[in-house]
Design a protein around this nucleic acid. Structure first.
Length: 203
DNA sequence: GCTAGGATGCTCT
DNA sequence: GAGCATCCTAGCC
């Protein structure tokens, strides 16, 4: 699977201990990192510019709020794996699982600044505008070719993974989360300040 | 430029 | 049966 030079191209995947921490901390650290998905069609990915943290029984907006169900089981699983769910009858959203095994927590990846495989993402999205390729959680999964096949995938592999591009601490914005009805006031959305690739303009 | 509403089906009550 | 961690289009300004 792994070929010579791959790691040099992308950098090594972040390891399990990065994800095995409290969810808001991991969420902050994810902004500015590089997310990549390698498929037969090619590699596609970019810089993470917007995320939202979802907690457990204290967070009424979280899928894990009411405890374990068949759908949210990955949220209770191994840190550094992926939780993908299907919503609104047509969209997929991708989350990164956090916290030690058994403790629910996940981070929704909401927006990407496209850097690798732009033509591939344009083809998958049916859109030319780079700004609109991965701005929004469902657009992002469509651009990267992510669906339920990737549910519970391991981010420490070199197929779907996140790497550190060496960027120190990018300027971070914090706000309430988007598109939810309850717990909107919790400051659990983190985004790259000044980036035009975040899903909703700053105010 | 902006907003309102429809699409569409899985999940949990 | 209601609600949903969304996106896109049409219609209006």
């Amino acid at each position: 699977m792994r070929r010579r030079g791959d790691s040099a191209n992308w950098g090594l995947p972040l390891q399990r201990d990065f994800y095995e921490r409290d969810t808001p901390t991991v969420a902050r650290d994810l902004v500015g990192k590089i997310l990549l998905h390698r498929t037969r069609a090619g590699a596609a990915g970019g810089r993470i510019v917007e995320v939202e943290a979802y907690l457990g029984s204290t967070d009424s907006a979280s899928h894990a709020y009411r405890g374990l169900t068949p759908r949210n089981r990955p949220m209770f699983g191994t840190p550094g794996t992926v939780y993908v769910y299907f919503t609104y009858g047509m969209h997929y959203c991708m989350n990164v699982v956090t916290e030690p095994e058994g403790v629910p927590g996940a981070i929704l990846i909401r927006a990407l600044e496209p850097l690798f495989g732009v033509p591939l993402m344009q083809r998958r999205r049916g859109v030319k505008q780079i700004l609109d390729l991965a701005r929004g959680p469902a657009r992002l999964t469509q651009a990267l070719g992510i669906n339920l096949t990737q549910n519970e995938a391991d981010l420490t592999s070199e197929i779907l993974f996140i790497t550190d591009n060496g960027e120190k601490s990018p300027p971070l914005g914090v706000s309430g989360r988007i598109g939810i009805r309850t717990a909107r006031e919790l400051p659990l959305r983190f985004y790259l300040l000044g980036s035009p690739f975040v899903s909703r303009p700053e105010r």
